[in-house]
Amino acid sequence: MITSLRRADAGPLNEKRWRRAVKVLGLHLTLPPAILAMIFATAARAEDKDAAVSKQAVEAKMKYCEVCHGPSAQGFVGYYPIPRLAGQQPEYIKNQLQAFIDRGRVNPIMANVAHVLSPAMLTALANNFHELNPKPLGGAPKDLVAAGKQIFEEGIPKADVPACSSCHGAHAEGNGEFPRLAGQVYPYLVRELGNFSEERGQNPAKPDTSAIMQPIAHNLTEAQIKAVAAYVSTLE
């Protein structure tokens, strides 16, 4: 076909030289685009939000999380109470990290942490934390546990507070977007339930699952919050 493109008045066809010319031209035409394609494809893969994230990157990021959340993510009570992530429902972790990014859940420290995480990293971290299973941090007042168990299992019908177990599970293990509460850090739970509407659901443009808990947190008294927090913080 290429030979048919030759001009009609072109000289006698020198097969060898012609083939070489075609080869050289072909290389010049096809090699650069091929190289460019490879470069852009790699770059695109790195930016491609669904690309896999390396094992080392995940492990490094886990170690970084554990500086605050504790060596097996059992939580830590520093200046702030920092929650347990071990055994947490992956969907809940992903939702919270997204909420930090979207400022639906206001926390300047976690917003910084979360906004550099790619979706692949988010998923990897959530799955890894779910697998951890250290003993609970403990430290809650033991005398509140019995009252807390009753609230957890039966709710407070007079105050329109449903039983926590109905969504969080009989052992507070959580399910899907409903978080695990078992073994959660006591002062963290007290703070969350006490502050729910000030901290969560802050982005009216992006209503999130926190809306479910708003009326419940609102209806619980401080004493009831402390009791139920004490109870679930002991569960394993």
Partner: peptide
């Protein structure tokens, strides 16, 4: 101190040491 260096996996000091 307040934000850490998340890209380098440096935790925010304020998270544990307080604001």
């Amino acid at each position: 101190f307040e934000d850490g260096v998340p890209e380098d996996n440096v935790a925010a000091c304020a998270a544990c040491h307080g604001p």
